[in-house]
Every structure is written in C-alpha cells, then in structure tokens.
C-alpha cells in the first residue's frame, strides 16, 4: 500500500550529510513498506522526523528525493491535480492539533473534504456520510455545535470523522493522542483499532506514546531522521 525507498528530506539551509547527524525533522535514506490493512506505528523522539515522514507519504511535502509510492502511485510523478485527488479520496489525515475550522459547525468540518471533490452530487451525499462518521466516533448529537464548544478529545474525534468522510484506504495520524489525557487518548485509539480491524483501513500513526505503539501491528523507530529499527 505504501512503499518508501531511500527517502531523503532536507530542509532549506540544512546539509543532507550534516556532521553532527542530529538535524531535526530531516529524513535520511529511509526505506519502508506498509501492506494493505497494516497498522504501523512510527515512533521516535520529538524532531526525529516522524511528522516529516507522514507529510511526505501524505503528499503534503513534495521537496524530497528517493521514491515514494502510495496506493500504487509514484508521488514524485503525480501532478498537483492527481496528488490532490489522492489526498481527497485515498488518504485521511489526523493531526495532533486537530486543525478544525472554528467558523464551521462540526458537521461542516466533517464534510469539508467533499467540498473539494469532483462533483456536486458527491457533496450532496456527503452530509449523510458525515453524520454516519460522527455516529461512529460517538458525536452524532453534536453535529450543529462549533468546535470551540468541544473538549480536546471530542475535537480529535471530529478530526477522525473528517478523515473518514471519503472512506480512505490509508489513515495518516500525527500524534493523534498527543494532546489528550490518558482515558480520552485510549478512546481515540480504540476508534483507530476498530477502523483497522473492522474496515481494514491501513493505519500509519506517528507517536511517542508506548501504548499506541504497543497496539500497532508493527513499529519503526526513527532517530535523527534515520530509521534505526523496523
């Protein structure tokens, strides 16, 4: 489902082969593959390159070298139009900071991916799917609320519902429980596990929390941009 070969990511001003080898958020010759329906945890300390890896795999970051294939498509060769379509249809993102839009209702936040779809009909059907996704994360009764009225855990569940709207094959989650307390984090993790087991959704979760990585089927460890385990 995902194949990464010799991925190198350098931020402007950084040298790919810096002497101290501890430059944050750069990726150095990372190679991995994730099978369909797999649950992969990417662990490592802050600045080890977890988020960068997810951004590259998710097509949000295009400045890298190496080879990255997602759902059989070579990201380096995809034009913006196709890459955007891939993000819209095949990928779902869940961010540590939720990134819900405060001026929209919960339901509107969840239907957001449908606004950037290719047909108005799809957008018309999105509301039903959004309500379904909200039910699934236990927030079916909060559809008309604004995100500011929700707790952190609820916001993250809304973000999960948004990622699920188009029933993506791959879910990329960046520290999804990082801002949550233990019990709320556990509830969110349960949702991910259910998605993975019941729907066969491929999960790639960047985390530094042991309970998340322990729940994953496989884990890789990044350290200073290098994959040191997995």
């Amino acid at each position: 489902m995902i194949r990464v070969e010799h991925l190198v990511k350098t931020y402007p001003g950084q040298a790919a082969e810096a002497e101290d080898g501890r430059l944050p958020s750069a990726l150095r010759d990372v190679s991995l593959s994730v099978a369909r329906g797999e649950f992969l945890a990417v662990v490592g300390r802050s600045g080890s390159g977890k988020t960068t890896l997810l951004n590259v795999v998710g097509g949000l970051d295009r400045a890298w070298t190496g080879r990255v294939e997602v759902a059989g498509q070579d990201l380096a060769r995809l034009p913006d139009r196709d890459l955007s379509l891939l993000r819209n249809r095949t990928l779902g993102f869940v961010f540590q900071a939720f990134h819900l839009l405060p001026h929209l209702t919960i339901l509107e936040n969840v239907t957001l991916p449908a606004w950037f779809g290719t047909s108005d009909r799809d957008r018309g059907e999105a509301e039903g799917r959004a309500r379904e996704a909200l039910e699934r994360v236990g927030l079916g009764n909060r559809a008309s609320d604004r995100p500011t009225r929700l707790s952190a855990g609820e916001r993250q569940r809304v973000a999960v519902a948004r990622a699920l709207l188009n029933r993506p094959a791959i879910l990329l989650c960046d520290e999804p429980t990082g801002n949550l307390d233990a019990s709320t984090g556990a509830a969110v993790l349960d949702i991910f596990l259910e998605l993975n087991r019941r729907d066969g959704t491929t999960l790639v979760i960047a985390t530094h929390e042991p309970r998340v990585s322990e729940a994953a089927g496989r884990r890789i460890v990044l350290e200073a941009g290098r994959m040191v385990e997995g």
């Binding site: 955007s84 990134h99 950037f116």
Partner: peptide, 16 residues
C-alpha cells in the same frame, strides 16, 4: 494559513 493548509490536506488543488 491553517484554513488553507487544511483545505490542501483534504484535497484542494493549488488552482482551487
């Protein structure tokens, strides 16, 4: 910026 970035993450093209 965040709103635009979210749009991009959920499938907005540069042209959009």
């Amino acid at each position: 910026r965040v709103e635009i970035a979210v749009y991009r993450a959920v499938g907005a093209r540069l042209l959009d």
